[in-house]
Write a protein that binds this DNA or RNA. Structure first.
Lengths: 221, 221
DNA sequence: CGTCGCGTTGACAAGGTTCAAATTTGGTGG
DNA sequence: CCACCAAATTTGAACCTTGTCAACGCGACG
């Protein structure tokens, strides 16, 4: 499917990709037929892509097939840039699509060697972005119980698995984080309590003991 | 509420913020009472924050008060970093919270002067992040009709307001983007057609003429 | 001791999903 | 070019998860 390979000229459109690649401006053009995969979640991230024509969707899947599309990429848009070495989501051509591809020579590493501050900023932003991607999947495709279970596991992990999980936020905050109402959140907590996935500690409902982390993880498809 | 101001020492925890600020390592510590605002959406972004203790929520609001919390920030976490000059969302202390504050001397500009490639990468990632933030608000807090209206306006804008909006993606793709089913998306299109917000062009249902962009924008609270 | 904020629970309503079927569109081969 | 078949889209009806509204309990605090 390789159409041609050339050393990129310095026309305006090349600006971004050229800059992204540093001095490594070897571009090639590629074409994907509608419905074909550009890259898959978990695959090695070797290239950065810029769309010349067509459209690409980037998405995440739950184990049972539920899909959340993060975004559509249209001509001029770039995608596929990753912080680490693997792709955090999949990409497919929506229609017949031409892209310009640039070899990604580990952008973060390249940058680190040149400017420590820059890479620090970048890694902050990409961590935030990664969280947002996961949260879009939660908001778009998970049930109330799955959302609450995921929330508990997230807090548990970020607080380094304490015996007693002390939530600083109210039910309203949790609801607004998970895209639910306080009543639904409350009912989910009660359900998980009844199923002995968790227990409330003390009087307050913000001190929680996770009794079955694996069980909670199963909710989180 | 200012507790003390000091020239930051070079202890390990300072690493990130120090690097973020380049050589400008003047830090101060601040305290916020529970429920108080750290910064508001649209405000000038002057500082970068790192949480010492407590918790902070960052969120967006719709005009009628519906709220979507993007994330909770816990001790060690940083937030408030912006690409442009203003904050894209608000931040409030969930509980009594201490933070370390570093003056942000226009990070992007600082970086641009030092490394063109780095700033190019950063601006790509932050644009993507900004899109994700808006999309979380849509997925967490908007109705089906609001989502579809927002989708049409997004595509319209990205394709530079064509007379006929040619959607490259299927109803399934749109549904998976908006966190809905294809049936709901289809019904929303029909409703908007019946209300004369749009018209289908030709035979196909992927060629759309927007008849009332302002009307659509009103759906998008 | 009364009030207020927070959380839980119940009854009911509603928006969205599921299931099913009709209709249209696009692709393919004759 | 047309016929035919598969895929996509629309529409209808029943159902269900979640939201809404209301009541209640509990603890904190004046």
């Amino acid at each position: 499917m390789l159409l041609r390979i050339n050393r990129a000229s310095r026309r305006p459109l090349d600006g971004h990709l050229a800059a992204l690649a540093g001095e490594q401006v070897f571009c090639s053009e590629f074409s994907y037929r509608r419905g074909t995969e550009v890259f898959g979640e978990g695959e090695e991230a070797e290239y950065v892509y810029q769309i010349l024509s067509g459209a690409v969707r980037t998405y995440k899947l739950l184990s049972d097939g539920r899909r959340q599309i993060n975004s559509f990429h249209l001509p001029g848009d770039m995608f596929g840039l990753e912080n680490g070495t693997t792709h955090r989501f999949s990409a497919e051509a929506v229609v017949e699509t031409r892209v310009r591809i640039t070899k990604r020579r580990s952008l973060l590493e390249t940058m680190t060697s040149r400017d420590e501050g820059a890479s620090s900023v970048l890694s902050l932003v990409t961590r935030t972005l990664q969280h947002a991607e996961n949260h879009m999947l939660l908001l778009g495709r998970k049930t109330a119980l799955e959302r609450v279970a995921a929330f508990l596991l997230e807090m548990d992990e970020r607080l380094v698995h304490p015996n007693v999980l002390t939530l600083p936020m109210s039910r309203r905050d949790i609801a607004d984080y998970l895209g639910l109402t306080i009543e639904t959140v409350s009912r989910a907590f009660s359900t998980l309590r009844d199923e002995e996935m968790l227990r409330f500690d003390g009087q307050t409902q913000r001190e929680i003991i996770l009794l079955d982390r694996e069980g909670l993880a199963e909710y989180d498809a």
